[in-house]
Design a binder for these strands. Structure first.
Lengths: 260, 260
DNA sequence: CAGTTCAATATTTTCGAAAGTTTCGAAAAT
DNA sequence: ATTTTCGAAACTTTCGAAAATATTGAACTG
């Protein structure tokens, strides 16, 4: 599989809002503690760390080769992103998933994705268009993964998929909307992962339709396509992910035992 | 000043969505580390820790009487809430404020506050109404503070103000919307604080108007009033907070020096 | 005098050990 | 047979010391 440059936001993506107050995107930090955070987040999003799973310091220390203090900091971060929970004295666990949650976050996503996309189109630049073309190209080189593809292919697809969707809205001028959009996109990735694992449904190429509408600066059509894109994914998950509707979805192997 | 019971959400506020995935509200946790977090957050919101101020471990350790590890965890949390920033190797600082930021977050607040309020009205219960009446009563006992009121009065008013606005939307069924609404409300509190310190403008009693519209289940009127409430606050800040428009607002005393 | 270098100082980051809780299961009591 | 009590084991939380990194300022150079 061809290597891809790290998703570096193109120059001037947000130059007129350089010093903003909205929460920091941690993905550019290079300290060890952020490294652990990034790895753990990816593991949760890809259900390597499964929903409801207890996160014990002993195990995590081995897995990520770091100290409790560093781990604690990373876990704390994940809690505020909503990917983990904690009860004082009882440690941490991966956040549960549920149909209600997926519906709720998807509804908010529809609003934030369309709002940021409309604004991005309004303020689009040549560099923005270029990154959309480029990130779409990279995404299209990888067919949407099926359940029997190896983990690494699925993960690479996930990265490119995110990079493409980030590119679409990159010139939006509202840092707060962008921040929450990004957080919710990650949340949705957990459910997408489950869908990817279970579904055999073939979807038409929605990404290229969105791309073309965006490049044509047809805001209404682009937003409407993006909204459908999100809603279709929800429906697909409802239909294909076993247990999600009954509230006891399991990931790969039977998850950790739950109380009564 | 009369003491007030801690703002305990009334029973059954969210009973049908007990186990949700949305980020945890940390205000109910009782561990030492959350104590520090709560105190630091309050200090930032009330500009005791001023925008752009460098947060040194030495000083913080004294002020909050705790260890570096615990501090680090709290600071890390504040970063993901957007109240602090960090650059690896260079420690932490309080997030800057700016007019652009206030405008941006207020715009998103209008959407989230009205959306959550409409849903809360739709699903309101007797207990919800009771908490609105009660929290409004407590708020009305304290006149909106002026610049020469002591810090403790301003802080108590801030608490009651938040409790009242939380009560309004408590029965909203969307945990994610509620979570982001709450985060943005806190963000806005920093600007409200600055306004409170500088403004002499007398505002009509908007809170009682909102309360009555909500209790009458007049969703349209309530949302419209709430929207005005937010917008008026922005205008007041723009007019009365010196330096906010020029991008160099200072808090009380000249802030810490900035580079070039 | 402006710009560099380098050592001294200040500050942040990482770590593992000590203290404090919770959980689990065996033994005692009902 | 079920519940309660108690103590050992597992785990979490807190802490401050050690390592790593950034900043400051004095001495030096062009």
């Amino acid at each position: 599989m061809a290597k891809v440059l790290p998703a570096a936001p193109f120059e001037g993506a947000n130059e007129n809002l350089a010093a903003t107050t909205a929460p920091q995107d941690v993905s550019r930090e290079d300290a060890a503690t952020f490294d652990v955070l990034r790895k753990m987040r990816e593991d949760i999003l890809c259900c390597v760390l499964k929903p409801d799973q207890k996160l014990k310091f002993g195990e995590l220390r081995q897995r990520y080769d770091t100290s409790v203090g560093t781990l604690r900091e990373a876990l704390s971060h994940l809690v505020s992103e909503g990917l983990a929970r904690t009860e004082s004295g009882r440690g941490f666990q991966v956040s549960p998933i549920s149909l209600a949650d997926f519906l709720d976050l998807s509804e908010l996503r529809v609003y934030l994705e369309t709002k940021t996309l409309a604004d991005a189109i309004r303020h689009g630049t040549d560099a923005w268009e270029a990154e959309i073309v480029s990130s779409y190209f990279l995404l299209s080189k990888l067919a949407a993964p099926r359940q029997d593809d190896p983990l690494s292919v699925k993960q690479e697809w996930g990265k490119r998929h995110k990079r493409y969707h980030d590119a679409l809205v990159a010139t939006c001028r509202s840092p707060w909307s962008l921040h929450y959009r990004s957080e919710l996109f990650d949340q949705a990735r957990r459910y997408h992962w489950l869908t990817m694992i279970h579904s055999r449904l073939h979807r038409r190429n929605e990404h290229i339709e969105i791309r073309d509408a965006v490049l044509a600066r047809d805001s209404d059509r682009a937003c409407s396509l993006l909204e459908q894109h999100i809603r279709t994914t929800v429906e697909q998950a409802v239909t294909d992910v076993p247990g999600l509707m009954r509230g006891n979805a399991r990931v790969l192997k039977p998850g950790t035992r739950r109380k009564s």
